[in-house]
């Protein structure tokens, strides 16, 4: 795209152009739009929700056990008479926190390690790539199960376990981009100026190589929610009585057979909606890149 040299005229024109593209983008990219709206809703629920609920997530009420959904308890109550909607809303905070920290950790460490592998090549690449192969030979969830079983099951270890499980994808993506970029002429130009190798890698190349890894983040958020809930369900992650979707589903499963379906159903819906939100954004971002 060529732009003429008259800045005074160009700048407002550019801005208009940008706004125009923004509205058009949302009309065409339904997945991204829906995903972002859902995400805003989820974030609002996580931030404001606990302030609006009437009950506490840990407040037991012996008289109100297993009450079916009603106006008093929209999602019903569980075996201790705790209000399920309150627990689902409180859990949103924890589960989104887990998803964000897992993804952030996997993204930051993964892309830096991947950069080293792609940029330096040789034995650095050999060692990193073989380790990645080892990690990838386990399904991510099994790997995370192993790590929590080894480190002990608390919040911090769940986050570590899941980020280790997702890191290989970030390493591979960044490594591949870095391989493409390391011979770019602008890297040579930086070297001619006397920029150090590490600085060329981190300042010049990494920001240009990060695109696919950023797109991967949205997918990873969805996986993290699902797998964190899965670990808790199996008793390897967050422990009862913490309000966490996986814990609630795990505890509620046995109630389904006795007819109290709501104890597992509503946290399950929360997981589905959240995972779908991130997958919609992921699809939207991919579509955005293809356009």
């Amino acid at each position: 795209m060529n732009i003429s040299t008259e800045t005074a005229e160009v700048t407002p024109a550019l801005r208009n152009d940008k706004r125009f593209r923004f509205t058009r983008l949302f009309k065409h990219n339904v997945s991204l739009t829906t995903g972002l709206i859902l995400l805003i809703f989820l974030v609002l629920v996580a931030i404001l929700g606990p302030l609006l609920t009437q009950h506490s997530p840990y407040e037991t009420s012996p008289g109100d056990q297993y009450m079916a959904p009603s106006l008093a308890h929209l999602f019903g109550t569980d075996e201790f008479g705790r209000d399920i909607i309150t627990r689902v809303i409180h859990a949103a905070r924890l589960d989104l926190f887990i998803a964000v920290s897992v993804t952030a950790l996997a993204f930051v460490v993964g892309s830096i390690v991947g950069s080293f592998a792609g940029f330096y090549g040789g034995w650095v690449d050999m060692v990193i790539s073989r380790l990645v192969d080892v990690l990838l030979s386990f399904p991510a969830f099994i790997l995370a199960m192993g790590v929590t079983a080894m480190l002990g099951n608390n919040l911090q270890n769940v986050i570590i376990a899941l980020s280790v499980a997702y890191m290989p994808y970030f390493i591979r993506l960044t490594r591949a981009e870095m391989l493409k970029l390391r011979n770019a002429e602008f890297a040579d130009a930086a070297r001619c100026m006397g920029t150090s190798k590490v600085k060329i890698m981190l300042v010049h190349l990494l920001p240009n190589a990060i695109g696919p890894a950023v797109a991967q983040c949205t997918l990873t958020m969805g996986w993290a929610i699902l797998d964190a809930a899965g670990l808790s369900f199996l008793g390897l992650g967050i422990q009862a009585p913490t309000a966490e979707w996986g814990v609630m589903i795990g505890n509620g499963v046995r109630d389904i057979f006795s007819g109290e379906w709501w104890t597992a159903f509503f946290p399950g819906i929360a997981v589905i909606v959240t995972v779908m939100t991130f997958n919609l954004i992921a699809i939207g971002v991919r579509q955005l890149k293809e356009d």
């Binding site: 770019a184 002429e185 602008f186 040579d188 130009a189 930086a190 010049h204 920001p207 240009n208």
Partner: peptide, 11 residues
């Protein structure tokens, strides 16, 4: 450099 598109960091 030969190709000014490649020799300037796009960011």
């Amino acid at each position: 450099f030969q190709d000014p598109t490649m020799s300037l960091n796009p960011l």
